[in-house]
Each structure stands twice: as C-alpha cells, then as structure tokens.
C-alpha cells in the first residue's frame, strides 16, 4: 500500500478528530498519503482541481474519501451530492465518517450515494477498531473501478 501511494482524502474540520483519525490510520499500518480538507470547499477544490488545487491532475482521484457531515461553508451531504453528479468522481468511494447517528443523516447519506456510513465512537479504542476495519475493507479488500480518463 505504501508503495503505490494511493491517496486518502480526509474531510474533517475538527483538528482533534483529524489528529485522532490520522493516528488511528497510522497505528493500523495504513500508510497511504493523507490529504486533509478542512471544509467542503477545500474538499471540492481538491477533487475538481480548482482554487488552491488548480492544476492538479483530476485523472488521479483518491482511493477513498472519508467525509464528515457537519462542515463549514459547504456541508458533507452537499459535497457528496456534487461528487455523485460529476463524471470525474461519480464512482469515487465515499465513506461518511461522522459523529451524528441521527437517522435522517444516515438516510440522506445513502440516498445521495454514500458507500458506507460509520459513526465515530466516543471510545478511542472502538474508534481505532472502526478505522482498522474501515482501512482493511476499503483500501485492501474492496476493488474499485478503473479511474476515468
């Protein structure tokens, strides 16, 4: 995994959660490059090579997007909607990783085409375990369609 440098796009505005998620990934030997976007706009800029990411090759998309729902500027559900409505990212694996366990968020996420919905546990040990399984499944076991273009 470390050699092919597959990218994980972590969309997270809370620096604590960002640090904990990165630690959980690293402790579970997930050594992919991690790009952090701290709001919805930054995430879309990265995916569609606009703004501060202008010029990035959109043919190379992340292997996995970990997307929070409550985000500044553009929220996670809107980001997901735009990912699914663009040909470049239509098949992009997106896992919702959020604190909310509200049913309406779960339903809305799946309706908008989320691949998975993970509730961040408060307990860090459970959080580590969730990230371990998530990494194993989405980065190792899961086969993704070839990148368009």
């Amino acid at each position: 995994m470390a050699t092919d440098k597959k990218i994980i796009l972590l969309v997270e505005d809370n620096p604590d959660d960002e640090a904990l998620t990165i630690r959980a990934l690293r402790k579970n030997n997930i050594l992919n490059e991690i790009i952090v976007a701290r709001d919805g706009v930054e995430a879309l800029d990265y995916l569609f090579a606009t703004g501060s990411y202008a010029g990035r090759d959109t043919g190379k998309q992340p292997q996995l997007v970990l997307l929070d729902i409550n985000l500044p500027k553009i929220d996670g559900l809107e980001v997901l909607k735009r990912i699914r409505s663009d040909d470049r990212t239509r098949t992009q694996p997106v896992v919702i990783l959020t604190t909310s366990s509200e049913q309406r968020d779960v339903i809305a996420s799946y309706q908008l085409g989320a691949n998975s919905y993970i509730r961040k546990p408060v307990d860090f040990e459970q959080f580590m375990e969730a990230i371990r399984q998530l990494g194993l499944y989405w980065l190792v076991l899961n086969v993704t369609p070839p990148q368009p273009g």
Partner: peptide, 22 residues
C-alpha cells in the same frame, strides 16, 4: 437541539478520551 447534542457534544468527548489514551 438533539441534533447538536448528538453531534457537537460527542466530538469533544472523543478528543478527551482519545488524547487521554494517547
């Protein structure tokens, strides 16, 4: 209110728990 409780109150708890363990 319950939405913010569900979302915003849990996040700092996870940080307290996580960093205590770290």
């Amino acid at each position: 209110f319950s939405y913010s409780v569900s979302h915003d109150l849990r996040a700092p708890l996870r940080a307290i728990d996580g960093f205590s363990r770290i």
